[in-house]
Design a protein around this nucleic acid. Structure first.
Lengths: 269, 269
DNA sequence: CAGTGGTCTAGACCACTGG
DNA sequence: CAGTGGTCTAGACCACTGC
């Protein structure tokens, strides 16, 4: 299955424009793609196909260089980019490993809510309370976010996260039913680490990237109860779409964050 | 002024631990620093010293390699990192340029508030209204954020940003008085681009990085008036500390964002 | 000690820009 | 066309890990 990439762009890897092709789709630039980008795609395909499991080591740079018939430096540049995207983790002297949401047990990689003192470890792990997990049909809005058809089967999960016994986050999640077949409230309750770690080990779904839209809102009465909050307490509304490989959306999540003792932390570059 | 970096770590660039030195400050690892990191620091110093102005080109990789007596590849790796940190911008065929907040006139690099339709250009540039700019003394809180002493002179700026004539952002800023000597409401009103662009051209202060703490709040009566909002309208509170080179804090900013027609957008990797 | 990732070099060639 | 950044190679050596 291992393809041999092309050296320069003179061969077949990038198809040349044919006479008579659609003018509308004509590319002004023939989309030059350097070798290391092609290697990157090949590695990505192996990751996606599950050739290397999360937290396992991938072959050494020399082995990959031999497999792809390129120099070590070229493999290196491909891996560098994948490491920068948090898909791989390099560890000097040991090897390169498939990234996972499980290893950093201390903190949830996508959770940016931090206690006021700035130290997430100061309040210990979150207490998770699964309220329910039910099978429903995708609304128009959910369907659009998950790139499925309206009416398609989806799983809906609702839970509350508490810090130091104070309910702080109320979350609703929608997942496409097919990849998550067999997910139940019990399994969620029984699992230990982050939910995304469960998704990896039990369903082979790895969340790689996410986009969040943040607003300030007031809760409705039901939300107030679940968060033990006043109806006048402003909350952070965090709407997240999480993606696996190939930018395929795999989760829509709506969170309500209580920000009286915590804040959402962001770094701008 | 151009230093010659050391090749391996056997020479003087990284001072060896001396017998009898303070045990408390003893480093377990002798802090090995690769050549390209040393080059990076040298380039950074030139940037900080203003040797190359914002939007100007820095010397070519070959020139820098000659100056620092290293290979092009080593300079390249140093520049790569600086480009990844948005301090430099590479342009193939043209050169490497000092990044600036001025060039992308279309969008404010640190402003993450986006209209609901997701397209910042759809509503045109923000209308800026400077409410006032006065000289005060740093409170304990402001002093801590700006790393100055309480009571030191600071400038306080208040302004409102409107989109499509709707007041949307109310901001208070605190700046250390010394570097911004001569900043007045008039100068702020007369300037055209982003405020950070003005800071670059007029005061030689380049904002390089920022941290934001986000919460949901309710406005007080004064804030309501300025934003033409109801007292029950929840708002996003965005507290930002912006840093120049060397992680030196140069601005504290407290923003209140109206999120009924906009949202704060964030990408998680 | 062998094996891994990390650094550095020197040189060749490619893609892009502008005169 | 010359000059810039971008890619790729082959080889040497260094730093770190674990046996």
């Amino acid at each position: 299955m291992s393809a041999t990439p092309n050296f320069t762009n003179d061969s077949a890897a990038v198809p040349e424009m044919q006479a008579g092709e659609s003018i509308a789709s004509a590319q002004p630039t023939p989309a030059f793609s350097p070798l290391y980008q092609q290697i990157k795609v090949l590695i990505l395909q192996s990751l996606q196909a599950g050739e290397w499991k999360p937290s396992a080591a991938i072959p050494s740079e020399m082995e990959l260089a031999a497999r792809f018939k390129v120099s070590q430096g070229t493999v290196r540049k491909a891996i560098d980019e994948l490491a920068a995207e948090n898909l791989l983790v390099r560890r000097q002297g040991k090897g390169t490993f498939v990234a996972t949401h499980a290893e950093r047990q201390i903190q949830y990689r996508f959770l940016k809510l931090i206690p006021d003192n700035g130290d997430p470890s100061s309040e210990g792990p979150a207490q998770r309370h699964i309220i329910d997990c039910k099978r429903t049909r995708a609304s128009v809005e959910v369907a659009k976010a998950l790139a499925v058809r309206p009416g398609d089967a989806v799983l809906q999960v609702r839970r509350v996260l508490s810090f130091a016994s104070i309910p702080t986050i109320l979350e609703d999640m929608w997942l496409p039913a097919a990849p998550f077949k067999g997910l139940t409230a019990e399994r969620l309750r029984d699992s230990n680490g982050p939910m995304y770690a469960l998704f990896e080990t039990e369903f082979g779904v790895r969340m790689v990237r996410a986009e969040e839209k943040i607003r300030a809102v007031l809760p409705d009465t039901e939300q107030c109860e679940l968060l033990a909050a006043d109806i006048q307490t402003p909350l952070l509304s965090v709407e997240r779409i999480a993606y696996t490989y190939n930018d395929a959306p795999m989760e829509l999540r709506r969170g309500l964050y209580l920000t009286s003792k915590h804040y959402y932390r962001n770094t701008l570059n």
